[in-house]
Design a protein around this nucleic acid. Sequence first.
DNA 1: TCTGGGGTCCTAGGACCC
DNA 2: TCTGGGGTCCTAGGACCC
Length: 350
Amino acid sequence: MRRVIAHVDMDAFYVSAELERRPELRGLPVVVAGTGPRAVVTTASYEARQFGVFSATPASRARRLCPQAIFLPPDFDHYRARSREVMAVLHDHVEHVQVVGLDEAYLDLTPFERPKPAARRIKHAVRERTGLTCSIGIGPNKLVAKVASDADKPDGFTVLSREMACERFAGASPGLIPGIGPKTVVRLELEGITTLGALAATSDERLAELFGSRLGPHLRRLACFEDERPLELDRRAKSESRETTFDADIEGVAALEPILDRLAGELCATLVKQNSRGRTIGIKVRLDDFSTHTRARTRPEPTNDVDVVRAVATELLRAFDPQRPVRLLGVRVAGLDEEFEARRQLELSV
DNA sequence: TCTGGGGTCCTAGGACCC
DNA sequence: TCTGGGGTCCTAGGACCC
């Protein structure tokens, strides 16, 4: 089935949402970042990016790189509200929309006789109704659309066929592809594969030896911009978690338990509000050496009872008994969609 | 320069069952 | 005396994404 997919990517979304409330900051380097000593940058304005400040840059480093930048604490309630406005515009124009996070969405433009003008109209409508700009990429699948939307930011509009994408990015690093991360880039480099063109030209047999029978050939297909994934229109969360990184490491289970209680309380309050329950309760512990450890236990029946979640999480923490200072503690409930999935399977079977 | 918070998916190994 | 093969569930770790 020949498809036309668009990827809509809001430009520096959190910063743009802040600038609407603080227009006097337009044109300045603005950084949305947490305030603690271990905070990282959530979003940087394009002015700040010129100083080498990007998402995930430690805030301390960002301050050094760009001391004149305006630092704003994140206000996710505001970003969520603005995101709903943006997504409403998209839904007004297109039947099939896959929302990805607060600032991205895939659109199925296949039904449009003239998809490009339709996408132009959507781009203008987003700006009219929200005051925010986005970049749009159009292609035959999600991968091409996504890479195209990134190719001409901000306020971009890029249309690519699969062949054009292959040609245009043949000399680019494999890390350009979403799904090929830093670890894989290094492993490819060690094999002398430094470009997408080289990856596309590597045999499945060789890649399977290096990366396994599934991931190996998958990497080559990505490099060829082959992607048959459908849009996922009604995704349900499978897990929900709360975690916190301490300003200074904490030692000993006794000092950690009150924090675990608080996290479990916040998590269960959300689950109860959503009326969702899960069977698997887990903890996450990051030590001072940045090693991350998880422990989990699955129960016969799903729960969102704070007493149950607290009790299980505490047991798991006591059993793990970290022997080094702890920098992060988290609680998680998973298997949230099992009841929903079971019902869906049942409906399919009748 | 040390590295957030909230997620998803994959893999590998062990338990257990038929 | 030596040791099947498949399937499912569960745990832990890791890569990756926004």
